[in-house]
Amino acid sequence: MKGRYDDENLKWIPILIIAVYLSPFLLKSATFSYKYYLYILNMAGIYMILTVGLDLLSGFTGLMSLGHAAFLAIGAYTSAILVDQAGLPFELSLIITPVIVGLCGLMIGFPALRIEGMYLGLTTMGFGFIVKRLIIAFRDWTGGSAGLQVSKATLFGFTISNDWNNYFMIYTFAIIAIIVARRIVKSKLGRVFMAIRDSEQAAQASGINIAKYKMLSFFISGMFAGFAGVLFAHTNHFISTDHFDILLSVYFIVMVLVGGVGSIYGAVLGTLFIVLMENMFIPLFKDTLTQYMHLEAGDFQAFIFGLIMLLFIIFQPMGLYGMWLKMRIYWKLFPFNPRKRFT
């Protein structure tokens, strides 16, 4: 029998991981404003954890969710309350909070047993609105719409105080999250998820309890989002409902789509692409374009992301990861490229 990862080239993985840990040093030596770049990369790292979970739900199980900003919010607020108000250690919150958010995911999973596609998206979006109102309503704990100050993270006695330290913490967890997600996808559980996506009826006829596995998918996805939420709260030091706008959920979907639905690396690539785009490339040509287009700064991003998503769906439905795979095949066959394969 073939092994689990036989068809993959694993020797690059350690090199990639080393590159991840080396890049802040490179950035520091390259630019004076490295702290800003680190901040952006940290953001990308947190979102990565979430989009990997979202990909498990939307890409692999085929259940659309527009409520992931709400999961992130629940994670962030739960951890802030647990650590600052209940006095739990950060390490414990790192374990408890994802479970709580996962249980919230289970709650959302209930309607998903009956609703599909677009309507599930709308339902989860409604969940996002509800969560936002609830956060404002419980203002004794959450600080309402004024926001909440959050303490710094302390891991085993070591206080993680600045973006430099945050980077190493976030990316360590991000790498763990990616590895866990890869394991899930390559396991029997991952195959069950994909089977449900491809045909619910056939999955049921094979003896799969689809209700159970759909709920499980929501639970796992919620756990990833909760994990991201904890990191978000304790590295941003300030959270408010504005951070978890409904538009953020849409961006998460865009990240997964751009990266390539149904591949973990795709979700990672898509997240990096969108976050870097948002913070580094769009500001470069924003001024020139707004002269001609009369768009507000906020609308501009939505416009660009809408455009990117549209172009990707039409021209690259497999996303960035799909492009990479195509490129790899292209170079493998280099002098003999049958043109038709790449249309």
Binding site: R191, M194, R197, D198, S199, A202, A205, S206, G262
Partner: peptide, 29 residues
């Protein structure tokens, strides 16, 4: 299904994006 009834659904609902082998593995879930 555990009792021993196998069902081949209409329109050959296979798991389109899984490989043939994985399809069979799912059958033996």
């Amino acid at each position: 299904i555990k009792l021993g009834i196998g069902h081949v659904p209409e329109w050959r609902r296979i798991f389109a994006e899984l490989t043939v082998k994985e399809n069979l593995q799912m059958g033996g879930f």
